[in-house]
């Protein structure tokens, strides 16, 4: 029924991005909730425990197994995503540039409850900042995770973060940033449901790129 699309016909979210997005969503949920199960045995913030209904894994051993299984999906998927994003220029196209006056403008507009989302293909400055923040937090999770998993083999990574216990704090802080992002991200997606549909079906078609692929040198 659908008309044959030319290969150059670009969607806001190409199939590869959509697949990686949902794999990442599942992997992150596994990593966060199993991480909470591991956390409970030796808390970082006194008095902060995660209740059973939020934890993945019957007890610590299974939370550990979930965490060390999920890490492959989170890590490999994330690595492919970053490689894809850099190679196709998508990250640069979607997330850059960020101008300070645009950030101020978006914040002011948001405070006036003006959340413009008519055009899904353009991310506002705060959106761009948040996406960059969550990518950085994810890289932090991978590096600190690697350091916690193999503190002897990657001992230089451990000292880079200031010792084993401070790696744990960085790993915890990265989780807090990601959970904060997920809450805002899901809330806004629910407020503007067509964004969810776009991540499932591909979203609106994009104009031809101004510059040819790989504009970044």
């Amino acid at each position: 029924m659908k008309k044959e699309r030319s290969p150059k016909d670009r969607r806001l979210h190409p199939l590869a991005i959509r697949v990686m997005h949902w794999i990442n969503a599942a992997a992150m949920m596994v990593m966060i909730t199993s991480g909470w199960g591991i956390y409970n045995d030796d808390v970082i913030i006194n008095g902060l425990h995660f209740p059973g209904y939020l934890r993945l894994g019957e007890w610590a051993a299974w939370s550990v197994n979930w965490h060390f299984a999920g890490m492959w999906f989170f890590g490999i998927n994330g690595l492919i995503y970053l490689t894809y994003g850099v190679a196709t220029g998508r990250l640069r196209e979607r997330l850059l540039p960020i101008r300070p006056r645009d950030v101020v403008k978006t914040v002011v507009e948001t405070l006036h409850f003006k959340i413009a989302h008519e055009d899904l293909t353009v991310y506002n400055a705060v959106q761009k900042l948040l996406y960059i923040l969550v990518i950085l937090a994810s890289i932090n999770q991978a590096l600190t995770g690697l350091a916690l998993w193999k503190p002897v083999q990657f001992s230089s990574l451990v000292s880079l973060f200031g010792g084993f216990q401070s790696v744990r704090v960085f790993h915890f802080a990265g989780m807090v940033v990601i959970v904060g992002f997920v809450i805002v991200h899901v809330l806004l997606a629910v407020l503007v449901p067509k964004t969810i549909w776009a991540m499932l079906a591909g979203g609106p078609r994009l104009e031809k790129r101004r510059s040819p692929q790989g504009a970044s040198k």
Binding site: W62, N65, W66, F68, A69, W72, K150, P151, V152, Q153, S155, V158, S159
Partner: peptide
């Protein structure tokens, strides 16, 4: 689920054995 997790855990054991450097000393 537990069987799948243990299977991956077993795979992780092999990966860890590959990562192990016999000459690398702990701090």
């Amino acid at each position: 689920v537990e069987e799948a997790l243990l299977a991956i855990s077993n795979l992780n054991d092999r990966v860890q054995a590959l990562l192990f450097d016999a000459n690398k000393l702990a701090p």
